[in-house]
């Protein structure tokens, strides 16, 4: 019964949050601040991390292909498709979830503990509309932007390592990549980023709203939020990849 109650609460938060995105008051300043926090401030850490992930992917793929078929000629192609379909959006979302989700969970849970949320209700302001709505919009749009930039950065770093470590020319890398990669891969990556982006504020704020009193309560809410976000992203990735696999040509 407790699980059902939790699921019901989460569904209520989900519906109300999406409704608040499209209903006044618009609170553009809050939305812009959240967007800046999500997209601009997270950009450097995401580019650095996906860059290293791309480098590791290329080196490992080349090593394994040389063992299996004594040639790493196809590495740029399938590394690029792996980056676009999985790495770029999943790694950037997990990083964003850790950075932003933890922050928002701590913020909301401390507001709950210090009864600021009750104060908002007393003032006639919906806590979901005031706290979750702007974060949800910012996270969906911000994660799409971050996902696209992360994917392109990932491909760029993969090309660099292919040129300097594996002895490819940039032309060879791009030509092989074009054989494997379609534009729909980037579109699907953007859809994934949007879905992952939506889970971050929803789970973070949900854990924050349910925080127990005291410093322990804030800490536990933050931990639960980060774990919940990570698990939700991995699970959603599986669901979306399964759905998208029906649209791939082969």
């Amino acid at each position: 019964m407790k699980i059902l109650a939790v699921a019901g609460d989460f569904t209520h938060l989900l519906v109300m949050s999406f409704r608040s995105m499209f209903s006044p008051p618009w609170r553009w300043k809050n939305k812009m601040a959240a967007l800046y926090f999500v997209a601009v401030e997270s950009l450097p850490v995401i580019i650095i991390c996906v860059g290293f992930a791309a480098v590791v992917t290329i080196i490992e793929a080349s090593y394994h292909m040389k063992i299996v078929i004594q040639s790493d000629a196809l590495v740029p192609g399938f590394a690029a498709i792996l980056i676009l379909r999985e790495l770029g959006s999943v790694i950037s979302s997990l990083l964003l979830g850790s950075r932003v989700g933890a922050g928002w969970a701590a913020e909301v849970s401390s507001m709950k503990v210090t009864e600021q949320i009750d104060a908002l209700k007393l003032l006639g302001i919906s806590p979901i509309q005031y706290l979750v709505g702007p974060k949800l919009l910012a996270c969906i749009l911000g994660n799409i932007v971050l996902g696209v930039i992360a994917n392109i950065a990932c491909l760029f770093f993969a090309m660099l390592i292919s040129v300097f470590k594996l002895g490819y020319t940039s032309g060879m890398f791009l030509t092989t990549m074009r054989v494997f990669v379609n534009f729909q891969d980037l579109l699907f990556a953007m859809i994934k980023s949007a879905c992952f982006g939506a889970t971050i504020p929803l789970i973070a704020c949900f854990c924050g709203f349910r925080a127990k009193s005291g410093a322990d309560g804030v800490g536990k809410a933050t931990t639960d939020a980060v774990v919940g976000i990570s698990v939700a992203i991995i699970f959603l990735d599986f669901i979306l990849s399964y759905i998208f696999s029906h649209f791939y040509a082969s």
Binding site: M32, A39, I149
Partner: peptide, 15 residues
């Protein structure tokens, strides 16, 4: 902040 966010969106669109 608004300018930075706008530039980031423009860059993404261009990419």
């Amino acid at each position: 902040h608004e300018t930075k966010v706008g530039l980031l969106f423009l860059a993404t669109f261009a990419l």
